[in-house]
Design a protein around this nucleic acid. Sequence first.
DNA 1: TCCGATACGTA
DNA 2: CGTACGTATCGGAC
Length: 925
Amino acid sequence: MSQTNQTVQIDDPTSAQGSAGAAAETAAAPAPLDTLERSRLLVVDGHSMAFRAFYALPAENFSTDTGQHTNAVYGFTAMLINLLRDQKPTHVAVAFDLDTPTFRDTEYSEYKGGRSRTPEEFHGQIDLIIKVLEAMRIPTLSMEGFEADDVLATLAVDAANRGWDVQVVSGDRDVFQLVNDRVTVLYPKQGVTNIPQMDAKAVEEKYFVPPHLYSDLAALVGETADNLPGVPGVGPKTAAKWILKYGGLDGILENLDSIGGKVGGALRENIENVKRNRRLNRLLTDLELPVNLEAMAAQRPDRDTVEDLFDALQFNVLRKRLFDLFGEEEPDVPGQEMAPPEHQVLTDAAELKGWFNGTNQATAAVQVVTRATSGGEEAVGVALVTDTAAIYVPFEELDADAERVVGDWLQDLHAPKVVHDFKAAYKLLSARGFTLAGEVDDTAISGYLIQPDRRSYELADLSQVHLKLTLATSTAAAGGQQALALEEEDVATPAVAAAFAALELSRHFAGQLVERGANQLLAGLELPLSEVLARMELTGISVAVDGLDRLYDDFSATMANTSAEAFRIIGKEINLGSPKQLQAVLFDELALPKTKKIKTGYSTDADALTDLIVKTGHPFLEQLLAHRDASKLRQTVEGLRKSVADDGRIHTTYVQTIAATGRLSSMNPNLQNIPIRSDEGRRIREAFVVGPGYECLMTADYSQIEMRIMAHLSGDEGLIQAFREGEDLHRFVGSSIFHVAPEDVTTAMRSKVKAMSYGLVYGLSSFGLSKQLAISVDEARTLMGDYFDRFGAVRDYLRGIVEQARKDGFTSTIEGRRRYLPDLSSDNRQLREMAERAALNAPIQGSAADIIKKAMLGVDDQLRSRGLVSRMLLQVHDELVLEVAPGEREEVERIVRTEMAGAADLSVPLDVSVGTGTSWHEAAH
DNA sequence: TCCGATACGTA
DNA sequence: CGTACGTATCGGAC
């Protein structure tokens, strides 16, 4: 139902637009002779209109996911579509200037001088406009040594001589000289939407002279935009007065001496400028153009090219407008061109076998259909769609033979499959005893690799964005409908549609993946990893529930004590979890010093409160902090307790498509933020234990992987040497920058160095460093200066990263994973600086993610191929947690060390530390 | 019931 | 005015 509503809403404005267009055509119909007999030429000055569009639309609001700005392209294209719609020209062409000098530059070297540099955001947009024009089959022209306006003038005169009507679109006033009873100028008044027609009458009204004398007037007045000074003190009115009196500039020159007054003197003094202006502003009308007017006959756009290009530019609205204008069917009308194939429901073993054989190893999209159960959802069937056929297989109607046939195909490595969210499908099918294999694409992951900072990779969203295909949302929704006792048929159709969409998407993404060098990242890393993750999730980690319960009680008791004490101190009970109520108590009632300002008043976060303790020593604060700690820990414990499954284990869900840097994320529950820093918090890790039948847990983590990557990427010899010598990094660096022997590096020195090293990876400023270390900004700056003096290549690298990213529009990791950062060229300083810090961090954090992902593949592969029972359970960014079977500890440790250390070939060693124990806490080292 | 703001846990 | 995440709670908006 909501589906229908949505469609109506989306379609309504369009159909209104469409009918308006149709009405306009009907209105023009009564005068067919006029439109039929007389050709109408529309010629556009490409650069000048592109610039108008650029300055009319904010660049930061128009960019593709790849960071290419498109405001000028958008504005230009919108304008062009409007012109085609409103003016209905029979012939169209667009002229562009070239970078090469024109005869005007040769004659006057300062011609158009003093113009500011083309803004960064404009780069590349002219090329895109030319592509748009190609797609619209509109010829583009440019002539070496001449300006676009000369081309326009030549065309205008040629067409007018043939008796055509001509419209010249330009933001350059010089074209007014072309106006006559055949030729009008469309001169943008404001932006690119308001483009009034200037005919002879309009020119005369505005400039007081007829169009053929406009250039005389412009010569006298001058043109700042072209750096052509005129006669000081002479504006259009004076100039017009002279021109009308003497019949034009020639007449004025003949009567120079009879022009009196101060301006007359100025005219005589500047007469050479005026003559030069007149020579320069005369447009040439006799160029030898390589194409004739016939070649400019208006054509329908090249539909396929428009679709591809407008997709890439993300011009969905414009694409619609353009297709409306030409009466083209929109491709994204649901169930029309992209209609999924008819499907059959197959349950018979022989028929299934026949169908699988008939696919001939063609790629099939797989969509699992689920039903909600008390504990989650279960697979009830699967929709399979190839290029030529579609079936739905309801599991519950299969006999043992049929089930075997389906199972064989699902696990057939030579039956290539496209899945949207392979990991989810793998887990669902696995619960029914099927193994899903032979995956060649996961459209969610492909979409992520192409655009890693999208918030959603839902099939419906990707289909809408990339295919313009509206999808009847999820199969879960279909399942829900089924629960409402709708006919059973309903589950298959949306699933077939979804599989079809995935198949189309996969095809659509293939080229883009190659283009972005993400092919290997998908096939060699993310796709195999998704299966590894699926098995890790299915395995889960064993939890000592009684331990969690004890912790819950402990933390509850602490909460009770601290809150009671806190309330006693302030003499009343408030909600300690409400920042608002805390603010009232702290800053109004207790009148404590103000802390850092936030949107809703003053901060009550741990930093601020600790600060207040130092300043005031107020006893309430101590209780409040202790209460917060206990409350946070209890909340963590409670969340974990609720996530323990019937098998006594916690099964997190890793999301491969969330973090823009390439990291995994962990959800429901998040096992990547289990406390470790405080003693109390660390107790929670004691509750993660080795499961029955296994000997111990093993943790293996990379030490200082990000700094090692920094050393590698920067090639800094000092840093590389530090790691090669395998000494305490921070001590080594400290000894370098403080000029003392390593053994004389104090704890304070070491912690400063450590903070700075890590801060650098995040784009830390001296201000931030000073705040964190509670030192002065000067001291922080000196510290950073000393650091960079000693490790200069690090500074060069960090600078280079941002520069390169600004140029490319993206950063890259060692495996070629890209992150697009369009905000690097934002006018908004805050946005731009945020993007700069992200650019510093992304290659490092992302490379670390690449490395541990590769290591996971290696570890999993080794464990399995050696037939070991031990298994990976968790990944925490730079750490792996494994469950080790009896007798396998040594071999597993060797594997883990080898695979983790060998996951990348850096100029520094990858150091791995390993520990074992019966709990996660104990296994930590 | 939803959502922004705040706070805080991890690497 | 340090990157990348997920989750819980509060309290205002709906």
